[in-house]
């Protein structure tokens, strides 16, 4: 059997490719549900009529408040406004007890990264969805996929293991920041984005 040797090679190649392309991307992340479900769609609907800025706001000092605190939710939610079990749980477990929700932040960056929304949103006029994807009309929060090694979300690398064929907003690695900076002629150095 002269070709048997090549067969073992192909078996080795095939199993490694299967491991690398199929098994590894699954093993790499674990899936965690957000502590609470939230519907952007309901809140931004005409009936409720909230805008993005009601919860995600840029302060005078240039600091961005990405996650609303309970103080923002409380005025409306001292009593359940709808019928969902999730909202009832929200009122009972968070509003009534004065607890903050420990959201898992898809866009969370390492401690040494500095990012300010003010120049990007304010000066450059970049739309929120350019980096965060269109999520204002979603009815559910996606499960948070946490990288088992780095502990950051899958959103940082992006959904595709090769980083090919992805939407503009998918991926928040350093190269994503710097390629956009390059494309728009922003003078940059290490300290532009690191602290």
């Amino acid at each position: 059997m002269p070709n048997r040797g090549w067969m073992t090679f192909v078996v080795g190649l095939g199993s490694a490719l299967a491991l690398g392309w199929v098994a590894f991307p699954r093993l790499q992340y674990r899936t965690i549900e957000q502590p609470l479900q939230f519907s952007h769609k309901v809140h931004t609907s005409e009936a409720v009529g909230m805008t993005c800025e009601d919860c995600h706001s840029l302060g005078d000092d240039g600091r961005f408040t990405g996650l609303p605190s309970m103080a923002t939710c409380e005025p409306c939610h001292t009593e359940p406004q709808g019928q969902t079990a999730e909202e009832k749980r929200f009122v009972d477990e968070y509003v009534a007890k004065g607890r903050e929700i420990e959201w898992l932040v898809y866009a969370r960056q390492p401690e040494n990264v500095y990012f300010s929304h003010a120049p990007h949103v304010g000066l450059a006029g970049i739309a929120c969805a350019r980096c965060h994807g269109p999520h204002g009309g979603t009815d559910r929060l996606r499960p948070y996929q946490e990288n088992r090694l780095s502990s950051y979300s899958r959103d940082i690398w992006g959904p595709s293991p090769t980083r090919l064929r992805r939407a503009e907003w998918q991926g928040m690695k350093m190269t994503d920041c710097s390629s956009c900076h390059d494309a728009h002629g922003v003078r940059q150095s290490c300290l532009t984005c690191h602290k």
Binding site: V11, L13, S15, A16, L17, G20, F24, P25, S150
Partner: peptide
């Protein structure tokens, strides 16, 4: 064994695994 290992090595290199792992 060597052929299998060689195939596995090339297959691994052609998969995203080593590059993603390095980054992670």
């Amino acid at each position: 064994v060597l052929r299998f290992a060689g195939g596995a090595a090339i297959g691994t290199a052609l998969s995203p695994m080593p590059w993603n792992l390095t980054d992670d």
